[in-house]
Design a protein around this nucleic acid. Structure first.
Lengths: 221, 221
DNA sequence: AAACACATGTGAGATTTCTCATATTATTTA
DNA sequence: TAAATAATATGAGAAATCTCACATGTGTTT
């Protein structure tokens, strides 16, 4: 984690990401820039955050752990996104865990100092409203989705979305959690893909050998 | 469906439900009161609604139908709740279907006439923000939940939540959809509950005979 | 280098859940 | 009132997914 407080530098980032546009008052006095490395904890589950983060670069992982110890990845969020906006708006909300998946750049806003102003700012509120609606829409989509199709369909789609140059190299443990199936089962389906000549194991991960077939699987008529 | 436009009556309902409190301008000129009967369609899927509804009494069902014809119940919403707030806030959002499950009373707001004012009203926006956050929190909860436990656990919990005076009488077809399992499987689990002496079939529905056992099943340590 | 944590793989067998078929009863609709 | 529609109910067999057990590799920590 690297914190940048230097006023000029902070202003530079604010400009670059048009962050001021979301507010009707000057946000710079309450803002610092923070960079996270992959794996850094941004927010601990069940701890009320003291800051509102706006991730302008990178990817984060949202998860929560149930009392039985099982953790569920709620979502992978790509920049731009907020962290802690729920807690700002609703007193008794349940805080989820957040970690950086890749290097992240963010604005960190001190809500102790400007929380009240934020809650009264129509520009900010409208932005957050929209953001929330989009988030929950995507979620619902994903939800029906997950229940609707067996893993091979969802996994095929996931592989297509998360491969570059025909190479898929996500961590199976994480993906199994995200897709809501056991690690074992994911591996079954994976090896089935290999058996069917759709994927091929390579040094750098799994190579997509038959994209057409993968797309056919992924398309959920 | 019954529409009430009489100004005095509308004002009466507005007062009763403190609806004006959510706005910083006078909402009454844009509002009528509408009652829905069980089964009425409030909003058709994929059709952009022209009104924002605030349900002050009753229960509605939110669902969407996928291209393959399968419908998914997203949620049962109990009053008070909004319908159409997503569409007001986000241009290109995907409209879900909404039907009344029980008799509903609602305020119907003409967003063609006051949409812009709503989008600039911090009181309204803050309320909606909170509402959205709570909604999506509940979703997330439900989501991890659904994936985490086999049906008998989720169903046990559902029965406990949806019974009165030890009588459970929801429609199995609806519930199966909501819990995201096949009708057949729900019936299997149901009859298992009966076999184990937890439930008992009665005239008016199913009677809870062994609440302790049901609670034990429902609790997901 | 030993010990450890953790991701990757594979096997066997059990459980959960699904699809399809088929009857029987309401409830709606023509 | 007859016909159509939808909910309830049950059976058989298959597919999807899970748990547990275990082996291997790789990178960290001590």
């Amino acid at each position: 984690m690297r914190i940048i407080k230097d006023e000029k530098t902070v202003r530079g980032y604010l400009e670059k990401h048009s962050f001021q546009d979301i507010f009707s008052f000057d946000i710079s006095p309450y803002t610092t820039v923070v960079f996270f490395d992959a794996g850094d904890e941004i927010c601990r589950q069940d701890e009320r955050p003291e800051y509102l983060y706006y991730i302008f670069d990178g990817t984060i992982k949202l998860f929560f752990t149930q009392r039985n110890g099982k953790t569920y990845i709620i979502d992978f969020l790509k920049a731009p996104c907020f962290i802690g906006e729920a807690e700002l708006l609703v007193e008794n909300t349940y805080t989820r865990g957040v970690t950086a998946l890749a290097k992240c750049g963010s604005f960190k806003i001190d809500i102790k100092k400007c929380g009240q102003m934020l809650l009264e700012d129509p520009v900010f509120l409208r932005y957050i409203c929209r953001y929330q609606v989009e988030k929950s829409t995507r979620f619902t989509q994903n939800y029906g989705h997950n229940k609707a199709y067996p893993l091979k369909v969802r996994f095929a789609e996931f592989i297509l979305m998360n491969s570059r140059n025909d190479i898929y190299r996500e961590q199976h443990t994480e993906v199994a959690e995200f897709l809501g199936v056991s690690y074992r089962h994911l591996l079954y389906v994976l090896s089935d893909f290999v058996d069917r000549g759709i994927l091929e194991k390579a040094e750098e991960g799994y190579r997509i050998k038959n994209r057409r077939e993968l797309e056919k699987l992924a398309q959920k008529d």
